[in-house]
Write a protein that binds this DNA or RNA. Structure first.
Lengths: 127, 127
DNA sequence: AGAATAAACAGTAACTATTACTGTTATTGA
DNA sequence: TCAATAACAGTAATAGTTACTGTTTATTCT
């Protein structure tokens, strides 16, 4: 009753995402599928990606908007899922991780960012 | 000679950023400064934040656009500074870090994301 | 199976974040 | 002090994303 129905487009979008490791943007998914599905709409891609991400079937990766920090030395951040606030965290930065990443991938790793998420001290009480 | 000049607006913007730990967006900085500086332009804030970030005086934090991943279990990523490609990294995820973050901050930490950056294997040879 | 209900769609308009452009102001080196 | 031009204010344009409108279609209930 209350809710979600099957849709061929959602299936398509999800399958496209499962078949790749490119971490595509909505635009990319749209362009992959459009030729075979000429009347697929970009809005549909966005809607379904958000839908799938909200239900936890796929994963969203990015801050919504660009933020800036005057502390330039690398340090971890905490980003609240509820209010969107970003906090600094006083935790050690481990350069050894970069070496491990290089070994695991072969890429020329120059640094890394750690971002924790959850509910911040202000939002926690509010449920 | 070669370029950069002093500007009161850049100074203002940088000082505002140094005085806070809110990791503000360009919009936030603009709204803080606008009342005291009625003819400050939002474009100027964007331009100077980017300028300061490019020269390494401040730090930018975000992917430019939203990306999606069908692998929902937490795992680190590598984002190439040159081509913008995003790769999965086969490295262990350490849940212990979340506990440490909780202890350090008091926030209700539910997870973390690690994003390495540098030049990917394709871009490395191209300089 | 066939009709009724509403979720999901395509197409498009609107909105938000960011960058580019234009004419003006102001820093700087001579 | 003055010419050269970086940086500015204001605004237009662009890019990414979301919302709206009328239509299609999956599901539910006979």
């Amino acid at each position: 009753m209350n809710g979600k129905r099957y849709s061929r487009q959602r299936e398509l979008i999800y399958e496209a995402l499962r078949q790749t490791d490119e971490h595509p943007t909505a635009e990319m998914v749209y362009h992959w599928l459009k030729p075979e599905n000429p009347n697929l709409s970009l809005g549909t891609v966005y809607r379904n990606l958000n839908l799938l991400a909200d239900e936890g079937t796929i994963r969203r990766m990015a801050f919504p908007v660009e933020r800036y920090d005057a502390r330039t030395e690398p340090h971890p951040h905490f980003c609240c899922d509820r209010c969107g606030c970003v906090y600094d965290l006083e935790m050690p930065y481990d350069p050894e991780l970069d070496r491990q990443a290089l070994l695991a991938s072969g890429h020329d790793v120059t640094g890394h960012a750690v971002t924790f998420h959850g509910l911040c001290v202000k939002c926690k009480p509010l449920h």
